[in-house]
Amino acid sequence: MPDAAAAARRVSSWRQFKAILRKDIVMELRTKEMLTSMSLYALLTLVVYQIALSQSGSGFDIRLIAAGLVWLAFVFTSMLGLNRSLVHEKDQGCLEALLLSPVDRPVIFFAKSIGNLIFLLIVEIITVPIFAVAFMSGRPIAGPFWMIVLSGLVGSIGIAGVGTFLATMAVNARGGSFILSVLFIPLMYPALLAAVAGTSAAVLGGPGYVDMFWRSVGMGAGIDAIMLLAVYGLYEFIVSA
């Protein structure tokens, strides 16, 4: 039965994907290292915001900058998490083993990206309510809640995808986390601007905010698509270099 034998030898991409993703999640559940450090970092960012806003007075409407502040916290925590997720792979020789095994490179990329996306989303789910309670009390958001979720998702997908790619480069460079941040911020600029604009429209409301929201989210999704396609095409070169 040559077909069955071939099928047994060739594990499907989907199963490879699941195996890598499972490995990341199991490792995280055992060590809980990434989630704790990322959440803690996000909380400390909120403390820094408190310091920054401490003299702004009670008349200051935090909603004007709320979306920006939240995204800023996500950017910093995601850089921390992205760096850690690839440093683990490198330190323990896991990346090399993955490259030696007959796994398609794009599968590695997608599995790592989805893993990072899941961790980022968990941190976001922890951070956003705390931010809302700590800074937004008495100032309700104008748009429906799903708008916040949707713009958050679009922005996070971009961060996780491009970030995983850049983190793979950064672990092989001197001064890894520094390199990641200087590569990440200018390259993510358009995606982050779209994300902040989308979330801000939902928070602030005002005339025509639905239109503004869809335009921002649409742009964000388009930018995600272009960047992810490019990164997907280039990942094979990066990871084998």
Binding site: V162, M169, N172, A173, L183, P186, L187, Y189, P190, L193, A194, A197, M212, R215, S216, M219, I223, I226, M227, A230, V231, L234, F237, I238, A241
Partner: peptide, 23 residues
């Protein structure tokens, strides 16, 4: 790495322009 980053950076410039214009 430099080649990959150069390509991404070149893609990024028009996207930045577009986003600052449209949003």
């Amino acid at each position: 790495y430099a080649a990959a980053f150069g390509i991404l950076a070149f893609l990024d410039a028009p996207l930045s322009f577009l986003i600052t214009r449209l949003v």
